[in-house]
Design a protein around this nucleic acid. Structure first.
Lengths: 333, 333
DNA sequence: CAACATTTGGCAATCGCTTGCCATGGCACG
DNA sequence: CGTGCCATGGCAAGCGATTGCCAAATGTTG
């Protein structure tokens, strides 16, 4: 900053009557220096209010004590939990936390990574939009951990929508629904694929018909078209790619005078803030997003320290579950 | 990161047949070097994929190209807009954006500032919880810009809830309300004070009675007590410190079978995501939060460059306005 | 008490870049 | 043709830490 001048390791050294190197050791590698001198140095450092300069440290040692998280859209409430979890864990680990918005663009993502690479120890990529191949390639040069996306060979923390999706189907089946429509998210969305896979499999197992429509923009604005499309498909149950889309659909359905859940049931994913506020309150698949954020940072830090001894990257999978609210009900006859 | 070795300014220098200093100048201070050499150097740098190391640059020049934003509670949707605005502007200005959660604690805030001070050019403090005096003190050593808080002598960007608050009163008065209760936010909250001041003044001007209750935790969980307290005070209009609190109150009122807006009207502040989803949709004071975030970063960057010539710190004030939805209606007789 | 091992602390190089100062060369001018 | 000025580029000194290597001091052992 612009303050007069911060106290450096040299100030401490002079004041303590030792060499700078000794100060450095006393602080970082305490057993390398005599307890008496160490205590003295620590005391002096304390008194002078010495704080190591992270930049200088990083420049020399390569250890930046900083990580960056890249998010496709900070605005999307879906990411809040993950961001929060990651920030928290980072802060606990004494890491500086950089947040960057990539605006849903793989190019942006890549650029940000390259731009930031010198400043951080690693990246948490939330719902990355990049191609698998590109990701893998970048992972050779940089420390990457994925959240809510899996790529073979790369560490990741994901919420498994499989369990939740199966519960969706069971729930719907038990209410007498014979068919469902999945209103899909972005074409290249990993969770979208995962969700559809699970839904279809479960539906088949329950003798239910399942169709996929879309892709739709995973925002409330996409709900209009999605609702109309879903209605057109003639299903009694509409499963939206995420809550935002579901909420948009709810609006559209209300506009069209279609009763939910009387005529049609609606399900979302993510259990975002607001999912229980809308009318009717949304039945949705919830997952421990915050936990996923934490886990990702955890993986990142762990990775750094054991890089040699641990060739197999970790893949953390966290379970999801269905939260039943008012937007689902018995199938219309 | 851990890649083999990045190309440095020396690599470029050697390859281009000039001194490192010339490369540096060619890139940062183009007019200081002959156009021909410059072009050549730039070309070589390009070819070698040279990227300056931000850490080394910062260490030497003191220019970190990084700012940090401190937020009391990342989880609170109220801040999303501000965060987004700030991040966006920072990114546009080529600044790295650090986000830190201070968990509603002034001590945390202070510590974070001190911890990060060496790594950043300045701080954006959103809804700071620190005492005026402490803040001013810190501002002597560090570059600070406040958001949604004003402290004399410090630059800030705030959403003026005055206009919105007056509109609230006018709106309620026109619906026949003769009294209102303000369910206050945290004791030391600057917006809380500001809101109450404006409400009271406007109420007086309209011959309306106004009382303040609280403080209440500015979260949905606080809504229960707040609603009960408000009801107990016997007012026909409840103005909550923010939407979260208002939503919590709505829930409690529904629980108690109190009709909104039939028996009592409810107003919030911030127009957060979800305010239009709840039942009844919330009448609330909206402000350009994203704009405030942008403005704050703007002030921060501007400040740096003109530090000498501009002694008077800027205070940006952005207007708010009332958004009328369903939670307000004619006063019960 | 000599010979050797172990601590302990200092010197100096280094990380990658910026920048003050100086040396050089070309040019215009008197 | 001599002088002075300006444009241009290089040298080298930092910025604030870490760390390999070495020297001195201390302790251990036969």
């Amino acid at each position: 900053m612009d303050s007069p001048r911060r106290t450096t390791i040299y100030d401490v050294a002079r004041e303590a009557g030792v060499a700078a190197s000794t100060v450095s050791r006393a602080l970082n590698n305490p057993r390398r220096v005599n307890p008496a001198t160490r205590d003295h140095i620590v005391a002096v450092a304390e008194r002078l209010g010495y704080r190591p300069d992270p930049l200088a440290t990083a420049l020399q040692s390569g250890h930046k004590a900083t990580i960056a998280m890249l998010v496709p859209d900070i605005t999307n409430p879906h990411f809040f939990g993950t961001i929060r979890g990651a920030e928290k864990r980072a802060s606990e680990a004494g890491l500086t936390f950089i947040l960057a918005n990539t605006e849903e663009s793989a190019d942006n993502e890549r650029n940000r990574i390259e731009r930031l690479s010198r400043s951080v120890d690693g990246f948490v990529l939330a719902a990355s939009r990049m191609e698998e191949e590109t990701t893998r390639e970048l992972a050779r040069d940089y420390n990457l951990v994925l959240v809510n996306r899996q790529v073979r060979g790369l560490p990741s923390a994901v919420v498994d929508n499989g369990a939740g999706s199966r519960q969706v189907v069971e729930h719907l089946a038990s209410l007498g629904h014979r068919s469902l429509v999945y209103l899909s998210g972005p074409h290249r969305s990993w969770p979208a694929a995962q969700r559809w896979r699970a839904l279809r499999a479960a539906a088949e197992a329950h003798g239910m018909a399942a169709r996929r429509l879309g892709p739709f923009p995973p925002r409330a604005e996409g709900g209009g078209v999605a609702a109309d499309a879903g209605l057109g498909a003639g299903a009694t149950a509409l499963v939206a790619h995420n809550d935002l889309l579901a909420i948009g659909m709810l609006r559209r359905l209300a506009e069209r005078g279609v009763s939910v859940p009387g005529q049609v049931s609606v399900v979302g994913y993510d259990d975002i803030f607001g999912a229980d506020l809308c009318v009717p309150a949304l039945t949705t698949v919830a997952g421990p997003q915050e936990e996923a954020g934490r886990a990702a940072v955890e993986l990142l830090t762990r990775k750094g320290s054991l890089s040699r001894s641990q060739p197999a990257p970790q893949q953390v999978v966290l379970p999801s579950h269905l939260v039943i609210r008012r937007s689902t009900g018995p199938a219309a006859p």
